[in-house]
Simulated scan of single mutants.
Amino acid sequence: MSLSSAHEWAPPGVDPEQPSVARVHDALLGGMENFISDRSVARRLKDAVPEVVNLVWCSRAFLGRVVDFLVREAGIRQIVDLGAGLPTVENTHEVAQFADPRCRVVYVDIDPMVEPHARAILSGNPNADAITADVRDVESVLGHPSLTKLIDPAQPTALLAIGLLHLFSDQEDPHGLCRRYMAALAPGSHLAVSHLMASPSPQAKALEALLQATMGTGHFRERTAVSRFFDGLVPVEPGVVHLPEWHPDERIPGPLAPWEELLLGGVARKPYA
């Protein structure tokens, strides 16, 4: 639990003076598992782009629609959620297990605060777990004992990279990262991605500059670069689109708001042959 004083308690391995993506995200959603440093970044983001909270909730809604599709329509029963962040409303396992209680979900995040909070929520749920790991280390993630206990590599798996890949620079090769994960998964597995979109819009420029200044990350990419995450895979209709346009719960009533054009997303399947 975060405190309002300058001397905040933090679990081992967590530096409260250093903001983290997971905790800033939690602060933007109105959560309590964050520190003064995280709330400071969240305030600066909201000052620069007031719609950033809407953006975060839009991403959350996309995640829910994707997971529901993967279970109900694609027949997926096991999910690995990379860069999952701190638990909030309508978590991946809740959406998946509402559709089918047999679904198995493993959350992965590098922030040491995520695992204990996720496990507290998952207590008594034998089909879901959380691990602390660097998602860039594919072998360590997929070989983690807690993951291999739930995820059968011989069966199709959904790999979620929601709001994750724009944290990595081109030098870190996020496209190669996706290829390595999908190469290790069974045919019929699905990859879901959402990503901040490069744009000349003032909102995009302000958000990208502030993320770089406060978090040292935030790499907005063109639509063609986002589409490349799905190279070698079979796209799920409607392909890579703005998040509100992907399997909307209701018909989109009109043109997207400028902030709704800041995020792209899509889903694709690993072919069987």
Rank of each mutant, 00 (worst) to 15 (best):
residue 5 S to Q: 04
residue 254 G to V: 05
residue 115 E to I: 02
residue 14 V to A: 08
residue 25 H to G: 00
residue 270 K to T: 07
residue 177 L to C: 08
residue 137 D to C: 10
residue 228 R to Q: 12
residue 225 A to R: 14
residue 7 H to N: 07
residue 65 R to G: 03
residue 208 E to V: 12
residue 271 P to D: 12
residue 266 G to F: 00
residue 152 D to Y: 07
residue 123 S to Q: 14
residue 145 P to L: 08
residue 251 R to K: 14
residue 149 K to D: 14
residue 79 I to Y: 09
residue 149 K to Y: 14
residue 216 G to A: 11
residue 137 D to T: 10
residue 135 V to P: 13
residue 189 S to R: 01
residue 245 E to D: 10
residue 138 V to S: 10
residue 208 E to C: 11
residue 10 A to F: 05
residue 115 E to Q: 15
residue 124 G to W: 07
residue 156 P to K: 07
residue 130 A to C: 15
residue 175 H to Q: 15
residue 85 G to C: 03
residue 25 H to D: 01
residue 26 D to C: 03
residue 155 Q to R: 12
residue 248 P to R: 00
residue 29 L to T: 06
residue 244 P to Q: 12
residue 191 L to T: 13
residue 146 S to E: 14
residue 201 S to N: 02
residue 141 V to P: 04
residue 69 F to Q: 03
residue 91 N to H: 04
residue 225 A to N: 11
residue 11 P to L: 15
residue 146 S to Q: 15
residue 222 E to M: 13
residue 125 N to F: 05
residue 74 A to C: 05
residue 59 S to N: 14
residue 31 G to Y: 01
residue 163 G to V: 09
residue 40 S to F: 13
residue 30 G to H: 06
residue 263 L to N: 04
residue 191 L to N: 12
residue 28 L to K: 02
residue 93 H to T: 07
residue 33 E to K: 00
residue 155 Q to L: 11
residue 185 L to R: 03
residue 138 V to Q: 08
residue 61 A to E: 14
residue 179 R to K: 11
residue 204 A to C: 09
residue 18 Q to T: 13
residue 53 V to E: 13
residue 88 T to S: 13
residue 147 L to M: 11
residue 13 G to M: 03
residue 3 L to M: 06
residue 240 V to F: 01
residue 7 H to W: 02
residue 238 P to Q: 09
residue 147 L to F: 13
residue 211 L to K: 05
residue 104 R to K: 14
residue 263 L to S: 12
residue 262 L to D: 04
